[in-house]
Amino acid sequence: MNTSLLLQLLVNGVIVGMLYGIVAMCFVLIYKSTQVVNFAQGEFVVLGAWVCLSLVVSMGLPFWLAFLFSLVFMMVFGILVQVILLRPLVGEPVISVIMATIGLSIFMQATMNWIFGNNAVRFPQVFDQATVSIGGLNVETAYLMSLVLSLVVMGMFFWFFQYSRWGLAMRATAWNQQIAQSLGISVGRVFAMAWAISAVVSGIAGVVIGLVSAVSNSLAIIGIKVFPAVIVGGLDSIVGAIIGGLTIGILENLAEFVDGQYLQIGNMYSVAPFYVLLIILMIKPYGLFGTPDIERV
């Protein structure tokens, strides 16, 4: 057995899993606070990556500045999507809202194809050193950055929801919109804020993924890939989303290992998470971390 390959793949799994985790978190954030299933999640990720890339490549901005600008752009974009597309749909049936986000996803795909082209584009060299050696393992600097950023984002989410005024407001809105309103919370603002945060964090994930591999429209598949993560986590649990993301990331890489070393089927990598998803849904239909309602009689 090739131990070092296994270890390498596991480390990859954790890093990619964290990214899945934060994209899943974005998805859950929107679902939980606004009851919208965002099928354009993957496109949000890609858009962030494209904006950052084009700022670096065509405008020649330094990477960190471009990164910052692209996050500001994503924030504005998220708010606009909520205000223009989804606000008029408040109170409409779930299926209409789902159609709207699917439509948004197609629209964004087409527009990005048109503006940024069909090819994968790599970021120019961003870090001085391409790899860092940690305990004998060669870890790409981009991966390390990804890990650090993921942890920072998770930490910020935690702080936001535990201690900030608007974080509490968002949780109250998720619990019950009418109750939130009765406390003087503007639900419209909470919705816009949820989309803004989700878009910004998606943008972070997009840039990081773009750094690790390359930026292309096909990256939007991550929006579909996080579905198992989200559902394993239980659809309405942020912690669940992270753990779901990690699970899927590690499973993917384990599948790759088993496939490459023994089975030689090929492509187990992309299928395995969905098998696991099916099995988990059969055993625990509400996901591993779907919050049980407190019922008092």
């Binding site: 949780r171 619990w175 009418q178 109750i179 009765s182 407190i294």
Partner: peptide, 13 residues
């Protein structure tokens, strides 16, 4: 300020 029917407590907080 309205204290709603059924108290309107956010139960998971």
């Amino acid at each position: 300020f309205l204290v709603m029917e059924g108290r309107g407590i956010v139960q998971d907080m």
